[in-house]
């Protein structure tokens, strides 16, 4: 296949992904599967897809200051060094929650999402209400997720594009000073890396495991 550098193009995905697309599009055309059926099946499993990669990144940043600096400087490269590579052309930026700022990620146009670290986007992330309200009323959105911020914390909303994806680095929960990186990973939920929730506290983890 000639690769024309003279015009703007999109880098094709891996051969494996092309094989899946080929088979899926043919089966859909023949009426053997419905796209809605596939979406329903995938949505059932979406929370199991990938967010552990992001949890690995976050927990490592919590315990390893050098890695954290590299991550804040160039997340695409730092994350690739852990073996999580996106398709060509997508850049990842990590935005850090602090005592002053809470970050929230949205894609107002469609559903751009850092899937290399978070897996498939949840259905609500792709929904029109979330996409508009994350920008117009982020406080209400957080409240619906049961997330309470400190009064002095401002919310900063990051709008993803096909070129730029964002990952929230949540604040490390209190009472985890002696925890290992592996233990800390359990505190990092998918939603905390989108910014609609905080990282789990050790107590919440205990309750989840009951």
């Amino acid at each position: 296949m000639p690769h024309d550098h003279d015009h703007d193009h999109t880098e094709p995905p891996s051969d494996l992904e092309l094989r899946v697309k080929a088979l899926e599009s043919l089966l859909v055309e023949k009426g053997l599967v419905k796209p809605e059926t596939l979406n329903t099946i995938i949505e059932t499993y979406e929370h199991k897809v990938g967010p552990r990669n992001g949890a690995h990144v976050v927990a490592k940043a919590w315990v390893d200051e050098e890695f954290k600096q590299a991550l804040m400087n160039d997340a695409t490269e730092a994350v690739a060094n852990l073996g999580y590579c996106g398709r060509q052309g997508e850049h990842l930026e990590v935005v850090e929650n602090t005592a002053e700022v809470h970050n929230l990620v949205v894609c107002t146009l469609c559903s751009c999402y850092p899937w290399t670290v978070l897996g498939l986007p949840p259905a609500w992330y792709k929904s029109a209400p979330y996409r508009s309200r994350a920008v117009s009323d982020p406080h209400a959105v957080l409240k619906e997720f049961g997330t309470e911020l400190d009064e002095q914390q401002k919310i900063r909303v990051w709008d993803s594009t096909s070129e730029m994806r964002y990952l929230v680095l949540p604040q490390r929960p209190e009472g985890t000073e002696n925890w290992s990186e592996l233990q800390l990973q359990q505190l990092v939920s998918r939603n905390s890396m989108i910014g609609v929730e905080l990282a789990r506290s050790p107590r919440q983890l205990e309750e989840k495991d009951k």
Binding site: S14, K48, G50
Partner: peptide
């Protein structure tokens, strides 16, 4: 099941649907 990339979930869903 755990997936590493979206295409894996897509292939998984195709089998279940068929």
């Amino acid at each position: 099941p755990v997936f590493n990339e979206p295409w894996e979930a897509q292939a998984f869903a195709l089998v279940l649907a068929l």
